[in-house]
Design a binder for these strands. Structure first.
Lengths: 108, 108
DNA sequence: CAACTATTTGGCTATTATACCAAACAGGCA
DNA sequence: TGCCTGTTTGGTATAATAGCCAAATAGTTG
């Protein structure tokens, strides 16, 4: 794999990796319904505020979400809703995995 | 976040995380053109065979690829081509990030 | 069966990620 | 200004990941 190809896949991986954490997926899912501030998300997630804040900055650095400060709060929103298309495929992989397991059990 | 919701997002994250590595993305990209064996992929990637094999098992465990042994070789192939839909969105995030950066530079 | 090729597994180290706490910072308001 | 609320940053301990080498395993062929 040459340098240029490697960089291309590194750039892609950085974005996908940012989505590869349950809390961050939850955040993306929440923001698909509209912007929310850190405190709202923290309440829903039930982790330390600093933890949630760091997850948000990872998503932001990847370019998946954007922030806007209004008063005391920082509101986060989805920058490109197309990331939601991940969910559809992921669900079908999960479904397919279940079917696969059932087939294995049947054989036994 | 309740137990059930957490588990749902953990299951999703496992699959996305499996794609969140440059080498594994490259593998998925390659397999989109048809099955390939470990040695072929190793040659293209230029890493240790054991490293490639481990990446393959991560993708396999996630249910993204499947393997089939034929003779001495193990052939891997994409199990659900819908994962390729990730690429389209990822590219648009990357494009959007570039545009964002240009806008920042213009302001300066 | 022995030698060979292809792949996986185990072991080790270096790096990266995650979570929490505490402290810093920022805006709004008495 | 001083205090309150909301958010980010720094420090740190722990866990997870990635890579290579060496060794084990599996199938092929002489």
């Amino acid at each position: 794999m040459d340098m240029k190809t490697r960089q291309k896949f590194e750039a892609r991986a950085r974005i996908i990796k940012a989505m590869g954490h349950p809390t961050r997926l939850f955040i993306v899912d929440q923001l698909s319904q509209g912007e929310q501030c850190v405190r709202e998300l923290t309440d829903l997630i039930g982790a330390d505020t600093s933890t949630v804040s760091k997850h948000l900055s990872i998503l932001k650095d990847a370019g998946i979400i954007s922030d806007e400060k209004r008063g005391l709060q920082v509101y986060y929103s989805l920058r490109l809703p197309c990331v939601l298309s991940f969910f559809g495929c992921v669900e079908s992989v999960l479904q397919s995995n279940i079917e696969q397991q059932l087939r294995v059990i049947e054989k036994e």
